[in-house]
Amino acid sequence: MIRVLLADDDALVRGGLRALLAAEEGIAVVGEASDGHQAVHAAALHRPDVVVMDIRMPLRDGVSATRELMAADPRPRVLVLTTFDLDDVVDDAIVAGADGFLLKRASPEELVAGIRAVADGETVVSPSVARRLFDAHAARTAPDHERSARLTDREADVLRAMAAGQSNTEIAASLHLSVETVKTHVKHVLTKLEVRDRTQAVVWAYRTGFAYRV
């Protein structure tokens, strides 16, 4: 069972998400929060596997709350929902350690798949958010040839697919691999890049320009 905490200052949004997830097998909403302070407190109380986090909330925003949640033990996975695909705070949320980014206009199927993916250790980035990262970093990249040279051609393909927002299942389909093989490649990528998780690997790919070099 994936335990989910909903953090959003809009009660209607929380209600809609709760109703949506109530119909999903293997997912249970264990708590709600209307601001960042409540999110941190509720996460400590309910120990969710995934926090669905709004970025812009009163009193304390989702970026600050995410940063504190990253220090929890065990820490929840954080899936950020934002109205703004061009919002500068997306970068801040990445640095804070969020595990995924979806727009609030994402389909119910995308949201459910995103929750399941981040719960399984994957990184989820909506295509428009990925494009925003591309545009933001394209003109100010700093290549890291030493670490990029460690990757095999297949690992490089997997990393670029991760940066494009693809899940392990989608990567497997596009590269004609098994999901287990993709997971193995992802582990090798994290080790070779010396990063802690998929999100940081994606950040590295954009900041070094690797994500859009062929």
Rank of each mutant, 00 (worst) to 15 (best):
E194H: 13
D120A: 15
A72Q: 04
A138L: 10
V4Q: 13
R47H: 14
F210M: 05
A7D: 08
A156I: 09
R47K: 14
L133T: 03
R213V: 12
A42T: 03
M70W: 00
R131W: 15
T141A: 13
A93N: 05
A172P: 01
D144T: 12
D92S: 14
G209F: 09
R14W: 09
R56M: 08
T169A: 14
S167Q: 08
D157Y: 04
G100P: 07
D85R: 11
F210V: 09
M53C: 04
Q166K: 15
R154G: 00
L86S: 11
K192R: 15
G114W: 08
S128L: 12
A33P: 00
A156D: 15
D144C: 11
M162G: 02
G31K: 10
S167H: 08
V182M: 04
A201N: 11
F101V: 07
V189N: 00
A28M: 08
H185P: 02
A11V: 09
A164V: 01
D87F: 11
V30G: 07
D10S: 14
S126A: 15
M57G: 01
A136Q: 06
G209S: 13
T191Y: 12
S64F: 00
L193P: 03
V40A: 01
H137Q: 07
S126E: 12
G100I: 09
F84G: 06
D92F: 05
E155K: 13
G31I: 12
P143I: 13
L175M: 05
P143Q: 08
P74I: 07
M70I: 02
T152F: 01
F101R: 01
A71G: 03
D135R: 12
S126Q: 13
G36H: 04
T169Y: 01
L151H: 14
A65C: 02
A139V: 08
T83Q: 10
A96E: 05
R140I: 10
A28K: 13
A106L: 11
S148W: 06
T66D: 01
A93Q: 07
A43M: 06
L45T: 10
A65N: 02
S107F: 06
A72T: 00
A43K: 03
E24S: 04
L6T: 09
M162Y: 07
R47N: 09
G26W: 11
A205K: 08
L69M: 15
A93T: 06
G31M: 11
V30L: 10
V203S: 14
A42Q: 11
A163G: 06
E109L: 10
R140D: 09
T191Q: 15
M53S: 02
E25R: 15
R56F: 02
G62C: 03
D135Y: 12
F210R: 05
A205T: 10
E68T: 02
R75G: 05
